[in-house]
């Protein structure tokens, strides 16, 4: 039974937050991703796993409006009701990206303004949606720096002066400050030392719980999804080969590929 239906049946008048149908993209003759369909419900965290080249990053790019898919629908439940984000006008999509959506890049350099202070980085999204009170913006930024465990006296320092782990935490603060309804994360712990990864994961888990975040996390690291994801999609060669509740997939994998993945036989 699909967990999506499981959630939909009983007293849930709500609609899915994101509803993806028949999504596909190819690069010339090569498949990037194909026939991807799923629903994401409010408050749910979906993990997408697979080895490199499995199409998970292409899929994330298509979902988040960074790549143009060749076919399919990505319907988001906007303030004005469900809308296909692929046929949306550019201004609408940008508004979505500034407010309701957030994107955490693997490399913090891609998601931060390296020449702007830490609080300026956090404040940018507030200002983009109309905040015009310096003191309030600064206080909110300071609060968020605290929540991601960055010391108060670093508020005016630039990300260049931060360690890799701090940069990633700053990027998370910058994205979450506007209470986005959907967060995309691309290998959020990639490129960090193991001990730093653990701290970041712990922090992320806390934030996800506290804020009731809806998120889609792409990773090759099964530890990340075990800790954060409610549900899991396994990708291979651009297609979803297995999906289900995280524990279910990890503890009782059906597809042979997933079994290999879980038993860590595959170097992913």
């Amino acid at each position: 039974m699909s967990p999506a239906r499981n959630l939909a049946e009983p007293a849930a008048p709500a609609r899915p937050l994101l509803s993806v149908a028949g999504l596909g993209k190819s690069y010339g003759g090569r498949i990037g991703c194909a026939d991807v369909s799923f629903d994401l419900w409010p408050g749910e965290v979906l993990g997408i796993v697979g080895e490199s080249g499995s199409g998970k990053s292409t899929l994330l790019g298509c979902l988040a409006g960074q790549l143009a898919p060749d076919r399919g629908q990505v319907i988001f439940d906007t303030a004005e009701g469900p809308q296909d984000t692929l046929t949306m006008s550019e201004p609408q999509r940008r508004r979505l990206m500034r407010g309701d959506w957030a994107f955490v890049h693997q490399n913090p350099r891609d998601g931060l303004r390296m020449g702007v202070s830490a609080s300026g980085n956090v404040g940018e999204r507030l200002m983009a949606v109309g905040a015009r009170h310096y003191g309030d913006i600064r206080a909110e930024a300071a609060d968020w720096l605290g929540r991601v465990e960055i010391a108060a006296d670093r508020i005016d320092d630039r990300p260049r002066q931060f360690s890799g782990g701090m940069q990633q935490r700053l990027q998370i603060a910058r994205n979450l400050v506007t209470n986005p309804r959907l967060v995309f994360m691309d290998e959020p712990t990639g490129g960090l030392d193991v001990s730093v990864q653990a701290r970041l994961l712990d922090l992320l888990r806390g934030l996800v719980r506290q804020m009731g975040l809806s998120a889609i996390i792409v990773t090759h690291d099964l530890a990340v999804v075990r800790l954060l994801a409610d549900r899991l999609m396994v990708m291979k060669d651009g297609r979803v080969i297995e999906q289900g509740l995280t524990d279910q997939v990890l503890d009782d994998p059906q597809a042979a590929y997933t079994q290999l993945l879980v038993s860590s036989v595959l170097q992913v």
């Binding site: 500034r98 202070s117 300026g120 940018e124 200002m127 983009a128 310096y134 005016d156």
Partner: peptide
């Protein structure tokens, strides 16, 4: 300009005040 994407302009002013 077309998308009224002016957040960056205020970031600049914010940085001025912070510094």
């Amino acid at each position: 300009h077309a998308l009224e994407d002016y957040g960056l302009m205020h970031v600049k002013l914010y940085e001025d005040i912070a510094r």
